[in-house]
Design a protein around this nucleic acid. Structure first.
Length: 200
DNA sequence: TCGTCGATCTACT
DNA sequence: GTAGATCGACGAG
């Protein structure tokens, strides 16, 4: 069930991003298991992508996780507030990562509502990368954790979206990345209510 | 050392 | 529609 490490070692981060739609993401934090299936992702293509933290081989205490071998979590803080969860792919020294922007919750929904302080369930509970991380209890403690462990992992449960239900577009919030901001590196399930921005 | 800005979300007006 | 939260990386001084 758990997706094997070899899945994450491929060099084409863009195709892996698309393939991740429909895969299940779970966390077990404080003894509570929460998760759901992925409905929105974005690819960050290593040292040649201006929108990537690792552009131009930038290596800092924060980004060094991206340079490690694929199959681990990259969690960082953005705008001083939000934790973002990424899946690192490719081999050692190739800093590629996939941002998980939205999931459709299936397990532990009550626990997510508590974490999000949302007594009435709304689609925004896991729409957007900051929301996904909070709902799943993801924090920087998880940074560089293996996805083969029992804290955070992915599963293939046979759910698969046909191409005509998958949409592609430019990434969100990366206007500063000049021409790379236009790259079609964002993938999402058409019309899904948990997808963050435009979902048509 | 300081100032600026970012792979964002929420609560206001 | 937009202000505010407030940390890490970076470039200027």
């Amino acid at each position: 069930m758990k997706i094997p490490e070899s899945y994450y070692l491929g060099n084409d981060v863009v195709s892996i991003s698309k393939d991740l739609l429909g895969k299940y993401l779970f966390t077990c934090i404080d003894g509570i298991t929460t998760g759901g299936y992925i409905v929105e992702t974005e690819a960050y293509n290593g040292v040649i992508d201006k929108a990537s933290h690792a552009f131009g081989n930038r290596l800092t205490p924060r980004t060094k996780t991206m340079f490690m071998q694929g199959g681990i979590a990259y969690v960082y803080l953005c705008y001083g507030i939000h934790e973002m969860f990424n899946i690192v792919t490719s081999s050692d020294g190739h800093p590629q990562a996939i941002l998980i922007r939205a999931i459709q919750p299936t397990e532990g929904i009550e626990a997510m509502q508590v974490r999000r302080n949302m007594p009435v369930l709304k689609p925004t509970i896991t729409a957007g990368p900051g929301s996904v991380a909070r709902a799943l209890g993801i924090s920087r403690i998880i940074n560089a954790f293996s996805l083969q462990g029992d804290t955070i992992w992915l599963e293939d449960r046979g759910l698969h979206f046909p191409d005509n239900q998958i949409k592609t577009g430019p990434r969100i919030g990366v206007a500063y990345a000049a021409e790379d901001a236009l790259l079609p590196y964002r993938f999402y399930v058409k019309g899904n209510i948990y997808v963050s921005k435009p979902n048509k």
